[in-house]
Design a binder for these strands. Structure first.
Length: 421
RNA sequence: GGAGAGGUGGCUGAGUGGUCUAAAGCGGUUGAUUCGAAAUCAACUGAGUGCUUCAACAGUACUCCGUGGGUUCAAAUCCCACCCUCUCCGCCA
């Protein structure tokens, strides 16, 4: 969330943000709303001030055994007037807040101009195959490790059952990634997989993306669309000590997304599911170090692909592609031989103070003892399902077997191959 | 799910309708004292919003005693609903 004052004082930049992100919001309407809101705040404060003064007088004269009836009469009128102003003021503040909650984050100066992402770096050699490659869906089904039919029967479209070595591969990846990030200095968190409305609003999923998340209606809880939600909310409504920063957390969670309206060949199989597993990285940092920390976080996520031996590239996201809550972000994209293209497997973002303002997460700086919003950063490290896709496709053999990357074998009781049992 | 107790500043904790501004203590910061430290003494000590042309670690007003409503001229205090914590009971992996 941006502050109303910032938008008021930086109108041109606010317009530019909307334009570059391809969004439309009525800024003029907001400005007049904001003027009105401030008028009403002033009016209410004046009346309240009068009320406070007279209340004291009334109390005092009662203590002196005088009858303050005339004062009370007058204040009844003031009170009635204030009730009218107060209710209008509340409406205006609600409307203003609602606008601000739906306004996206600023764009950092490093965000590429135009509507194309920009390649930042690339790692690894693209694999060459001397036989026709299969996609992960064909491989998974023929190896008997991915079962879409059973999942559709027990739940519905957009879900999958992992079986045998497929399930073990998924679980091995979760543990491998968690262990790697722990050695990079992250503290492991196993959070709740449901969050309340306040937490879900804090990270920016509500109110704008209501259609994208699953809600447990009876209890007003939301299934997490990413572990970013609980991890960032670890410190909601807290003031942290500057010395404690940066704080780094890694957490595994399943992620639940409605993916309303998403279909097509590019998302077939387990590329896009309503439920998938993910290991998430979150950092809380000072504004001075947040971009340095983002660079580290991105490299720490990339390290997973390096150790698995999967080719990837890192793309700086342009204004249209960057997330609602993020001021700057990079995608890590892994090579998929069946599609002959790179596919997103992680997004690493700096939300700056956008989430911190919503969730009220601050730090107290040591010198002048004032408080400031922290910067929050997050990145997948990595999406597990898509990592399975990449492993199946990149390490497939002509006979349909799949070579398990060496770093995962200790997590799979030394298995070297995924093959039909 | 049922019964009971509770939720007050960074922490402990007093405050059952107004006159005094949420007492007091702890912690923290600064200063005095000291060669230095401890002890002692003194001062200071939260967040948000509006206004002061803009900004502010400046001034001022308002708000904040779990959350949201209500009663009243006036609410931490009275009423209602909800949330959370603790104790006991029930159910349960």
């Amino acid at each position: 969330m941006l502050s109303a004052r910032w938008i008021r004082n930086n109108l041109d930049e606010a317009k530019e943000i909307l334009e570059r992100r391809g969004l439309q919001l009525d800024l003029d309407k907001f400005l007049s709303l904001d003027d009105e809101r401030r008028d009403f705040i002033q009016k209410c404060d004046e009346l309240k001030h009068k009320q406070n003064l007279y209340s004291k007088k009334i109390g005092k004269s009662r203590g002196e055994a005088k009858d303050p009836q005339n004062l009370i009469k007058e204040m009844q009128g003031v009170s009635a007037e204030m009730a009218r102003y107060e209710s209008k003021r509340k409406d205006l503040e609600k409307e203003s807040r609602n606008f601000l909650l739906n306004f996206p984050n600023k764009l950092h100066s490093g965000v590429p101009r135009g509507n194309k992402n920009v390649e930042e770096r690339r790692w690894g050699k693209l694999p060459q195959f001397e036989f026709p490659v299969k996609d992960h869906q064909q491989l998974g089904e023929s190896l008997g490790i991915l079962d879409f039919k059973s999942a559709a029967r027990m739940t519905g479209r957009g879900f999958v059952v992992y079986k045998g070595l497929g399930a073990r591969l998924e679980r091995a990846l979760i543990n491998f990634m968690l262990d790697l990030h722990i050695t990079q200095g992250y503290e492991e968190i196993l959070p709740p997989f449901m969050t309340n409305a306040a937490a879900t609003l804090g990270t920016g999923q509500l109110p704008k993306f209501r259609e994208e998340i699953y809600k447990c209606e009876r209890d007003d809880y939301y299934l997490v669309p990413t572990a970013e939600v609980p991890l960032v909310n670890l410190h909601r409504e807290e003031i942290l000590a500057e010395e404690a920063l940066p704080l780094s957390y890694v957490g595994y969670s399943p992620c639940f997304r409605r993916e309303a309206g998403a279909y097509g060949k590019k998302i077939q199989g387990i590329i896009r599911q309503h439920q998938f597993n993910k290991v998430e990285l979150v950092k809380f940092a000072t504004p001075q170090t947040s971009y340095e920390e983002l660079e580290k976080l991105t490299l720490e996520a990339e390290e997973v692909l390096k150790r698995l031996g999967l080719s990837y590239r890192v793309m700086k996201l342009c204004g249209e592609e960057i997330g609602f809550s993020a001021a700057f972000g990079c995608d890590i994209e892994v090579w998929l031989p069946s599609q002959e293209r790179f596919v997103e497997i992680s997004t690493c973002s700096n939300c700056e103070d956008f989430q911190a303002r919503r969730a009220s997460i601050k730090f107290r700086d040591k010198e002048n003892k004032s408080t400031h919003y922290v910067h929050t950063l997050n990145g997948s490290g990595l999406a597990i399902g898509r990592t399975v896709v990449a492993i199946l496709e990149n390490f497939q053999q002509e006979n349909g077997r799949v070579l398990i990357p060496e770093v995962l074998r200790p997590y799979m009781q030394g298995e070297k191959w995924i093959e039909k049992s």
